[in-house]
Amino acid sequence: MKILMMPDSFKSSLSAEKVAWILGESFSQVFPSAQIELLPVGDGGEGTLDALSQNVTMKEEWQTVSGWDGQPFSMRYMHFQEQAFFEMADLVGLPMFSEEQRRPLDFLTVGLGELVLQLQTMGIKKIYIGIGGSATVDGGIGFAAGLGYRFYDKAGHLLQPNGRSLAKIARIDDSNVPMLTTEIYAVTDVKNVLCGEAGASYVFGPQKGLKSEELATTDQALRQVYDLVDEKLPDVPGSGAGGGLAASIAGFAKGKIIHGIDFVLDVLAFDQRAEAADLIIVGEGKMDQQSMAGKAPVGIAQRAPETSTVIAICGSVDQQVLDFSDYGITACFPIIGQPASLDEALEKAEVNLQRTGLNVARLIKKARSQSFD
């Protein structure tokens, strides 16, 4: 019997590596002779790089760039051969700020563009940027500024490259932008467009700290800026990821937007690994409507062989999601066993996951007509 353990992280609780290890231990108790392969994943959101590094040999390095507040910041990246990977969330990730500290229109993303130029100078040929889990809605103009772009208002004043300046931008100057010879990819964890009701402002703005009265004005400002860049970009799937960083990578850096989980599965040679898998266990902190839009569990299930059974084990499950079979998942099990506050649920996540993993494994063994002991 072959089992692939492929969970994403349980945000604010357990890393993908930890989840995979706990589930692997639970299932090995029930199926001691099974071949259990631990393949923690990410889908472009925070933690993707750590998950990849568990399965792909990469070298970790650090470069000094401008931080979210304009101060020097030591930014992590990983590389192998002539390819480099880094995450937006390492510079300006939502978990870095309490709810009271969240100011998505004020934080800077300039350091991301600076790092791209530094990596290009080092000879890197391909750069993959994981852009999930960000704390900004700046349309990626900070990133563009890091590449050398400058933004001016109608009076010719140089603007601060943050979300609060979006509505004031009247002219974009690219005279200081060097030639970009590196291929740049926006690795997205969602397929939302940049503008409109399904866009960066309306869907993700509130959780990042955008006030209700700022949603429409920010959305309009994003559209206004990209009318100057490429008016088709705001409607491209995935362009709204990272507060609009994906649109910026495509528009200002002539990069490509790619679906995060598919990218990760390709790197992990998933199609080959899954050929003989009897079970594929997926999961994340919360299964909800965003998950159904193609995050890690669903992305894995949709690429899994028909001969494999995909089971999801998650922190919690949104009541609005009723039928997982439409997405290739046979069943989904939340680990919360009794009513509890969020803090209590996070604190007990490990023991709850152990219990649930063991029970699910026992159920599977009982349901199958033969033992794999």
Rank of each mutant, 00 (worst) to 15 (best):
M1Q: 09
K2P: 13
S9M: 06
S12N: 14
L14T: 02
S15T: 15
I22L: 15
S26R: 09
S26L: 10
V30R: 00
A34I: 11
A34H: 03
G47M: 08
D50L: 13
S66A: 10
E82F: 05
A84P: 06
A84E: 07
E87Y: 00
E87H: 01
M88D: 00
A89Y: 04
M96I: 06
E99P: 07
E100M: 12
L115I: 06
G123V: 06
I124P: 09
Y128G: 03
G132D: 01
G133S: 05
G139N: 08
K154W: 00
H157D: 15
I172K: 03
S175H: 12
N176H: 12
V177G: 07
L180F: 00
E183G: 04
C195A: 13
G196M: 09
G199R: 02
Y202N: 11
Q207K: 11
Q207V: 14
S212A: 15
E213M: 12
T217N: 09
V225F: 00
D227Y: 06
L233C: 10
V236Y: 04
G240V: 02
L245F: 04
I249F: 02
A250E: 05
G251W: 00
F252V: 02
D266T: 14
L268G: 01
D271S: 13
I300N: 04
R303K: 15
P305W: 02
A312V: 11
Q319W: 08
Q320G: 07
Y327Q: 11
A331I: 13
C332S: 12
F333T: 10
Q338T: 14
D343M: 11
D343S: 14
R355L: 15
G357W: 04
R362I: 04
S371T: 12
